[in-house]
């Protein structure tokens, strides 16, 4: 009961000044520790092993790696739906469970697009944490919602049912929801999958607009070209961090072979063929 009261009264912890936006230290997730609570006989198998890194304010990081590399697990740790078996995940110096400043934009396949909500309803959901229990959205909340929709160029869609939107519009609406949440750490799970080039470009323009506000962005993607071109740093993941840094240093033949292994073929003249299977992990 005390826990429930604490949760209801809760509005998020203060950020510790001078701490990185996101930090992981020696984070390991063992399968036996329970992804979905399932204990396997593979006792020493790890979804992630000894992952350590720091991300600063306003950085944009691409998280790449083959299916099953642990991209979703990494995001679950940051969001706080999964606890590490070992190690620490901290956001501005505190564990994830205290924060309401982390926004997660799900893969489009995870959303029920027939749900009876309009675009502005979905964006208002991002405000529910700030509004608090037993209160209704105030004028300021509606102002934030409409401003967020304007920033992603979707103000004219406010009254549409979400199933009536195109893929690119759907993705932008969920980014608007993260803006309405006043997120400082934004996680996007395969946001570019299935989008045409103009729609991808529109997403990146929105993300560019977040940089002056110091919003940190992590994007899980299968698209190595975009990862190389549009991000400050690239994290190459396969159960551990194979490499993290500027794209030119990370996306080398050796690193890619280490991460993708059998899914990749190196041709005679040094060109690579990447046979990566898209995209629903877990």
């Amino acid at each position: 009961m005390a826990e429930i009261v604490r949760q209801i009264a809760h509005r998020g912890v203060a950020h510790e000044h001078g701490r990185p936006t996101l930090e992981m230290q020696g984070v390991t997730v063992a399968y036996a520790a329970g992804i979905n609570g399932v204990t396997t006989t593979r006792g020493t198998d790890y979804a992630l092993k000894d992952v350590s890194f720091q991300v600063g304010a306003g950085e944009r990081i691409a998280v790449v790696g083959p299916n099953g590399a642990g991209k979703s697990t990494l995001f679950k740790l940051i969001v706080g739906t999964l606890k590490p078996s070992q190690g620490d995940v901290t956001i501005f110096g505190h564990g994830p469970s205290g924060h309401i400043c982390i926004a997660y934009v799900p893969q489009r396949s995870q959303i029920d697009w027939g749900f009876p909500v309009t675009v502005e309803d979905v964006v208002m959901m991002g405000r529910v944490g700030q509004i608090g229990f037993f209160r209704w959205p105030r004028r300021r909340d509606w102002a934030v919602v409409h401003h967020s929709l304007e920033r992603v160029g979707a103000a004219h869609l406010a009254r549409k049912q979400i199933g009536e939107l195109s893929g690119g519009q759907q993705q932008r609406v969920f980014v608007a929801r993260a803006l309405a949440q006043e997120a400082e750490l934004l996680l996007l799970d395969e946001p570019l999958t299935g989008l045409d080039l103009p729609s991808q470009e529109a997403i990146f323009e929105i993300l560019d607009g977040l940089r002056p506000d110091g919003v940190t962005v992590l994007v899980a993607t299968h698209d190595l070209n975009l990862a190389a071109e549009r991000f400050d740093r690239v994290m190459l993941l396969n159960r551990k961090i194979v490499a993290l840094g500027a794209a030119t240093a990370v996306l080398t033949t050796d690193n890619l072979l280490a991460a993708y292994g059998g899914h990749m073929t190196v041709l005679n003249d040094g060109d690579m063929l990447l046979a990566d299977t898209c995209c629903d992990h877990d």
């Binding site: 209801i8 809760h10 469970s97 959901m125 529910v128 229990f133």
Partner: peptide, 21 residues
């Protein structure tokens, strides 16, 4: 609990990031 039930029913992960019970 209208808005909380709405969030939990539509997007369980959002409910977690908003730290709803």
């Amino acid at each position: 609990f209208y808005k909380e039930f709405l969030v939990v029913s539509f997007d369980a992960v959002l409910a977690v990031t908003l730290r709803l019970p």
